[in-house]
Design a binder for these strands. Sequence first.
DNA 1: CTTAATAGTGGCGTTACGACACTAAATAAA
DNA 2: TTTATTTAGTGTCGTAACGCCACTATTAAG
Lengths: 236, 236
Amino acid sequence: MTTEQEFLASYNVKDFDQPLFSVDSVVFRYFESQLQVLLVKRKGFPFKGRHALPGGFVDVKNDHCLNDVALRKVRDKTGVEPTYCEQLNTHGSPDRDPRGWSATTIYLAFLRPQSTLIEDANELAIWANVSEVDSLDLAFDHLSIVNEAFKRLHDRCSYTLIGAALLGETFTLSALQSLHEHIFAHKVEKKAFRRRVEASGQLIETGEYTAGRGRPAMIYKLCETALEYSFVRAMD
Amino acid sequence: MTTEQEFLASYNVKDFDQPLFSVDSVVFRYFESQLQVLLVKRKGFPFKGRHALPGGFVDVKNDHCLNDVALRKVRDKTGVEPTYCEQLNTHGSPDRDPRGWSATTIYLAFLRPQSTLIEDANELAIWANVSEVDSLDLAFDHLSIVNEAFKRLHDRCSYTLIGAALLGETFTLSALQSLHEHIFAHKVEKKAFRRRVEASGQLIETGEYTAGRGRPAMIYKLCETALEYSFVRAMD
DNA sequence: CTTAATAGTGGCGTTACGACACTAAATAAA
DNA sequence: TTTATTTAGTGTCGTAACGCCACTATTAAG
């Protein structure tokens, strides 16, 4: 074997023991003051009938990157693109899947509050309150993965504005503050929060106001660069 | 097929098209005022003879997690455990490896300045200056991965003390400051740097002092929790 | 017209950083 | 033996951004 051509011609992936490799997503939405996570009820083995994160194997014919795999699966369940998506990490071990050594790359993604699920999907998809996933007996190591994803969300919210991607396209500062209070599990000081957000320069006043009980609130939207913005100092 | 046992008994990973999966590491050391990265000269195809990151495939018989894979490979080249190790991210695409769709999980690891390489390893290992890797024509997408790893190092150094894991077990504040200046590619204000490090409470005076030209410097070491510490505010 | 609810501001004290001049302690040179 | 040079380390003032909390503003409900 002297040339790379010869090597590649005779190379067969299946001559070697390789782990299973999948891509799964932790998709959050913030609906009616609850942080929820997208789960699917598994139709096949292993863990048949148990709830799990949406995800699956790479389609080596069509997927061009790991992001593609994650988005394809989320699109299958919801019909829409996430408002935010980042790679979280990758877990591998011989025990996490009964089929053998397996590795899975996890994505963290957000959908808007009013996102609905596609009814006729193969697997039944549900929104579960994050506060209640512990009691759902998730498949694989998906419970600890949801917890890691929440921790990442918490961390990111303390020095970025990505939490806003969990709100509607437009939102009020009070709504953004409430979201942060929910994620941090404690109150945030109003003036300090507004000063900080204002100083970032990442929010645009729409000129519209809310109506209803109490003083109308200015409605804002994110500017283009908002999801890449980092504060120099962390909250929380 | 009605039970999970039956399913697993008849399941064969090789019945499906799976990507190749590997684990590679970007291992840095800070030697003689140069940040260097560990590379190996590839002995086999593909990219035979080119330089690449140390890494390889999961040993499904012996590895218990992805960390194990990364550390095993680094140990093969250096004989020692890194002073710091974290998972960076995972890249996958149909193009990055001529053998087919492949995914690789990248680890970021540090070794001490005086770390040596094991001579009789299968593949020749070298330390390359990070400032010069561009000219080395690295295999796969490893050049962009080295750049990502450096960016992560840069980011982490701006709000943690992990840079200290690139120094000897003991070090002076001036040495730590110089390291940061090298990574940030600009001067750091001495007083501000010392105040910050001092306030973290993560450094311990050894009571020893350096000798040589100029005033002797206090020698410090990291406390146990130092590598997990995060500053509330970022530098740089 | 008053009250409750929600939105938004003023202002003071504190923390941590930037800048920069200063002191301290060693060796090297005169 | 004195002076210069080098490196380590401190004092202090100004500033940016946060914590805190009292205050004003604007709406709907009673």
